[in-house]
Amino acid sequence: MARKITVQNNFYYLTLALVVLLVSSSLELVLRVGWLDLVLQLITTTTFIICLMSLRFDSGWYRFLMTLLVLWVIMAVIKNVFGFYQTDIFMLILMFSFFFGTFKSIARQILLTGSIDTNKVVGSLALFLLLGLMWAIAYLFILEFSPNAFTGMEHKAWGENFANAAYFSFVTLTTLGYGDISPVSPVAQVIVYLEAIAGVFYMAIVVASLVGAASQTNQDKNDE
């Protein structure tokens, strides 16, 4: 990379990687070619690596996330080389665990702690994207066991369905609710309304955290 990832700019790289992952997942819906499932796996792996590089300053979580990345690569190799598509469930579990660990690491660094700067504001956006991604993975996991859990979203390999799940997740997280994809099974309905609650709650927490940190920063400057 042209610039070194530091504690002052790490969330810029991490957020950009998450955005690229989301944008690239939509290519499967546009181009409709099978090999894009493999491309999405490679982009996901790259996203994980950038997340690791951005969070290496948090040594405890770094080791945990590194372990998940190694397991993810092993599962991807088993799936693509040996054709064991049963690994999809394990890959989804690893993805959820990785994004959850990344979320907790970022939250520890920016929410209700220290002074506010542009890097932390961008980090709050990364937290929002990670929330949507975790719920998208939860929906994909539900589809693995209940193919008819949603209307407008059918059961496919997770790479082919990732864009639909992410779209529905962020529509729910922002409480837009267009209705083109809807939960049918009781479990899916519970997960969906919990995401809507989390989206509203997150906005309140982030606004309070950023405003409080900004006020504390201004007060510290005035006291100098």
Rank of each mutant, 00 (worst) to 15 (best):
Y139A: 13
L127G: 03
N164Q: 11
T118S: 05
M91A: 04
F96V: 09
E160L: 15
F96T: 11
T45A: 11
M153R: 06
I116H: 02
Y85E: 14
V122H: 05
F82Q: 01
D117L: 03
A149N: 05
E144S: 13
I110K: 02
C51G: 14
T44V: 09
F98P: 02
V121Q: 01
F145K: 15
G123D: 04
L71N: 07
L52W: 01
F99D: 10
T118V: 04
L111M: 09
Q86C: 07
A166I: 09
F98C: 08
K120M: 00
Y85G: 10
F96K: 06
N119Y: 00
T44R: 04
F145D: 09
I43Q: 08
S59T: 01
A138C: 15
N148H: 09
A166T: 09
T47V: 11
F96W: 13
N161K: 09
I116Y: 02
W72N: 04
I78K: 06
M153K: 06
L143C: 14
L143N: 14
N161A: 15
A136K: 10
L131Q: 11
F98G: 06
L42D: 12
K120Y: 00
L92N: 05
I93S: 06
K120G: 00
R56C: 05
F150P: 03
R63D: 11
L133K: 10
M53D: 05
I43T: 10
Y62S: 14
F162V: 12
P147G: 08
L52Q: 09
Q86E: 13
R63E: 11
I78A: 12
F145T: 14
T87L: 04
L52D: 08
M134R: 14
I49Q: 15
I142R: 13
E154P: 02
I74M: 06
D88L: 03
Y85L: 12
M53V: 00
I89D: 09
F103M: 05
F48L: 15
A136V: 14
K120S: 00
I93L: 13
M95I: 11
S54D: 07
L127W: 04
F64C: 01
K156L: 03
L52I: 03
A166Q: 05
A149F: 05
S59C: 00
F162E: 08
L111D: 02
K104F: 04
Y139K: 09
G101Q: 03
Y139W: 11
M91N: 04
N80R: 02
S59M: 01
L133E: 13
P147W: 01
S124D: 14
T87F: 06
F128Q: 12
V122S: 03
G83Y: 06
L131P: 07
A166E: 05
I137S: 12
I43Y: 07
K79F: 13
K79L: 13
V81H: 06
C51H: 10
